[in-house]
């Protein structure tokens, strides 16, 4: 079985986000970029499937700017076998919408015929939480979202999902789209020898036009602003003072 793992290049999760003063967006120039943390979990799960003998090839794919090849090299260094870069934007500030990404991925799936697609449940930049579900709809495949446990057995996969009330387990028909949540696994760090080896692994480069997909955004960004700041608070000296202040504020 082949596993396809879409990965996204996003602002590193430790970086303090700066909104541009002219309201045009978030400043991404000269900012540390990394693989979306949820996608790292998806790559790790794919590699574990291969190590467990359930998968024979792991293919990473990224859709975005040319620099996303760095993100794909990270996936290759972790243990993916080969990578596909679909260049769909020139400017690092252009975010390709989940619908367009899902359409391109659907074409990649047609070409590659994976048995499962493992996606991060959301990207930490646009926080849309949509690509996996949309891809699943376009392909007419089953979906197992927000997975904290995954067990693939033959024609079915048992997926334990993190939901508002606790955990839900479902059984999905393969092939399936699985979107992964935080507690599925802990991604490995790539070792230096593996980082060196990754440079020699195959990375094919395509464009959105190669797949005939129009990536024109459906959502026009009117403006991007800083959220309203909270008024400064006070530090209290004791539990008694805290109780007094809370009572004054009518909070208890």
């Amino acid at each position: 079985m082949k596993v396809l793992v879409p990965v996204k290049r996003v602002i590193d999760y430790n970086v303090k986000v700066r909104v541009k003063a002219d309201g045009s967006g978030v400043d991404l120039a000269n900012v540390k970029m990394s693989m979306n943390p949820f996608d790292e979990i998806a790559v790790e799960e794919a590699i574990r499937l291969k190590e467990a003998g359930k998968a024979d090839e792991v293919v990473a794919v990224s859709i975005g700017v040319k620099q996303a090849q760095e993100t794909l090299r990270t996936a290759l260094a972790m243990g993916a076998d080969r990578a596909i870069l679909v260049v769909a934007a020139d400017d690092v500030h252009t975010d390709i919408e989940p619908l367009a990404v899902a359409k391109i991925l659907a074409k990649v799936v047609e070409e590659e015929q994976p048995g499962v697609v493992l996606c991060g449940k959301q990207a930490i930049d646009n926080d849309m939480n949509a690509t996996g579900q949309m891809l699943s709809a376009l392909l007419g495949w089953s979906q197992g979202t927000f997975a904290s446990e995954l067990d693939i057995e033959g024609d079915n996969a048992k997926v334990t999902r993190e939901v508002d009330g606790g955990l839900q387990t479902i059984s999905v028909k393969m092939p399936a789209i699985i979107t992964v949540d935080l507690r599925l696994n802990e991604p490995r760090y790539a070792s230096l020898p593996n980082i060196m080896k990754a440079k020699k692994k195959p990375l094919a480069e395509k464009t959105a036009a190669d797949y005939g997909v129009d990536v024109t955004p459906r959502l026009e960004i009117v403006k991007t602003e800083e959220p309203a700041a909270r008024a400064a608070g006070i530090v209290v000296g004791s539990v008694d003072e805290l109780v007094e202040k809370l009572k004054e504020a009518g909070a208890v």
């Binding site: 602002i11 303090k16 986000v17 909104v19 978030v26 926080d127 459906r218 026009e220 960004i221 991007t224």
Partner: peptide, 18 residues
């Protein structure tokens, strides 16, 4: 036209759907 938080709420984006 809708407002939604992005980047873990570090920015609020206004988007207009076509």
């Amino acid at each position: 036209t809708f407002e939604r938080p992005i980047y873990a709420g570090n920015a609020i984006q206004t988007v207009k759907s076509n």
